[in-house]
Amino acid sequence: MSNPWFDTLGVFDLETTGVNVETARIVSAHVGILDTTGTVLEEWTWLADPGVEIPEEATAVHGISTVRARAEGRPAAEVVGEIVATLRGLFSRGLALTVYNAPYDLTLLNREAVRHGIAPLELSGPIIDPLVIDKAMDRYRKGKRTLAAASQVYGVTLSNAHDAGADAVAAGRIAQAIARQHADKLPTDVAELHRLQIGWCAESAASFQDYMRRTKDPTFTTSGAWPER
């Protein structure tokens, strides 16, 4: 059984200069549309010159160096504007957008838009976050919850991890696999699924914060806001 929301599904992923959404810059991005079998119907890709040095640790993850970004990348403001416009177009077509660990990519995109004087993306359409749904459906599974780990659990091939295109498509296919595997527990109404994820993310963050305060740092705080912080 398939849920109607993923008969045609938008996917989105960023590769960036770092992990802090307030300061990191976009290096590469992918937006795509998958059909119900996970086949790519349409895709858009970008390589940006972020305007700052790309740290070696970031290059080690996604393989894009400062030299390459400056030589081959387009101005960051142009890229950010086009990403926002493309995602806006997906929402206008009534598509749900899959983003693995959505608060990272969507918050970072928001900050980049503000930085470059671009009207930020209004999250007018439903977001599907396989990380949040997987945690809710399989709460006690041991091990990592990375995209690569989830790909293995749900039988999705991730051949080129930390490439924005490969990661975006894998996230969409994981969402589809979760929907099939947990069809009895997930709503077919995508607006309801979006609402549920807000609560699931808040609960997960509260639980993690409690654990960290009890075991490591009494002052530890984490945000449970979703899908943007």
Rank of each mutant, 00 (worst) to 15 (best):
H116Y: 15
L147I: 04
P227M: 08
G224Q: 01
A175K: 03
V114S: 08
A164N: 10
V19C: 04
H182M: 00
W200C: 08
E72M: 13
R145G: 03
W46R: 08
G172T: 00
P130M: 00
V132L: 04
R214E: 14
L108K: 00
E42V: 12
G38N: 09
C201L: 03
A29K: 03
W226A: 10
V21W: 12
R25K: 14
I64E: 01
V156R: 05
E22M: 07
A85W: 00
T39D: 14
P130A: 00
L9G: 02
P55N: 11
A149T: 07
S2V: 12
S2C: 00
Q176N: 03
E42N: 09
G125V: 07
R111S: 07
P187W: 03
R173I: 02
G117W: 14
A150G: 00
V84T: 12
I64R: 03
S151I: 07
A71E: 15
D129M: 13
L97P: 05
R141Y: 00
P103Q: 10
D35A: 08
A170G: 07
V31P: 01
W46S: 01
R70M: 14
T17N: 04
V114T: 12
E43S: 15
V153I: 15
S65G: 10
I198W: 06
L106H: 07
V79E: 06
A183P: 00
L193I: 01
A71K: 14
V52I: 14
Y140M: 10
Q209T: 15
G18V: 09
I33Y: 01
D189S: 05
A85T: 14
W200I: 04
M212W: 11
N160C: 09
R180I: 14
D49L: 05
V132H: 04
V61K: 00
P75S: 08
V11W: 06
M137R: 11
G18E: 02
